[in-house]
Simulated assay, not measured.
Amino acid sequence: MEIFRLHYPNEQDLSSIELSAAAIGFFDGLHRGHLDVINTMKGIAEEKGLKKTVITFDPHPSVVLDPTRQRTTYLTPIDVKIKKLEALDIDYLFIINFSSAFAGLDKDFFIQEYIINTQVKEVISGFDYTYGKKGSGTVEDLKQYTEFNTTVVDKLDFDGEKVSTTKIREYLETKALAKANQALGRAYDIEGIVVQGEKRGRTIGFPTANIEPNYRYFMPANGSYAVTMTIDNDDNVYKGVASVGVKPTFHDNARLTTEVYLFDFNKDIYGENVTIHWHHFVRDEEKFDGIEPLIEAIDSDAKIARELLSDI
Score class of each variant (00 low, 15 high):
F127D: 03
F265R: 03
P9Q: 10
T76A: 06
K167C: 06
G132H: 04
L294E: 11
I78N: 02
D79L: 10
Q112D: 14
N222D: 09
D106Q: 08
L262E: 01
P59Y: 05
F127L: 01
G33V: 02
I168C: 01
Q12T: 11
A297H: 13
D28P: 10
S136P: 02
T249Y: 03
Y171A: 07
G29H: 05
V123W: 05
T53P: 12
Y215M: 08
H60L: 06
T40D: 11
G290E: 14
P77C: 13
Q144C: 09
G271P: 00
K239R: 13
G185V: 10
L105G: 05
Y270L: 12
G126C: 08
L14W: 04
K83C: 08
H277D: 02
E259G: 02
S100C: 10
G192N: 01
V63I: 14
Y171R: 12
I115S: 07
K134I: 08
F148V: 10
T249L: 12
A176G: 00
Q182D: 09
I269S: 00
Y238K: 08
A45M: 00
R169W: 13
I82V: 15
T230L: 03
G33Q: 11
F127Q: 00
V163T: 00
P293T: 11
T174I: 05
V163S: 01
G271E: 09
I276A: 04
K143Q: 15
S224Y: 06
K179V: 04
R202P: 09
E140L: 12
T138A: 10
M219K: 05
V227T: 09
A209N: 14
R5K: 10
S300E: 11
E170R: 13
G43I: 03
F26Y: 15
P207V: 07
D128V: 03
L294D: 12
L156T: 09
E86I: 03
A187N: 14
H279G: 00
G290K: 13
K179D: 04
F265Q: 02
K267R: 14
P9G: 13
V163F: 05
V195T: 14
V282D: 00
G132S: 04
N149P: 05
E18F: 14
G33L: 02
V80I: 13
D289Q: 14
F98M: 01
G104I: 03
V227Y: 03
R306P: 01
N253T: 10
N181L: 11
M41W: 09
T138S: 15
L50P: 01
D13V: 08
D141K: 10
E212P: 07
A45K: 03
I115C: 10
F57A: 06
N236W: 07
F288S: 12
V123I: 15
F110C: 01
A297D: 12
D159V: 01
D28F: 05
I17E: 12
P67C: 09
V64T: 15
F218M: 00
Y145E: 02
I312P: 03
K42I: 15
E47K: 15
Y129I: 00
L172G: 02
A87K: 15
H279F: 06
K247L: 05
V63H: 10
L105C: 06
D36W: 04
V260P: 07
I116C: 08
A22S: 15
K42L: 09
T208Q: 02
S15D: 13
V64G: 08
I295V: 15
K179L: 13
Q12I: 13
E18S: 14
A297P: 08
V80G: 02
V120T: 15
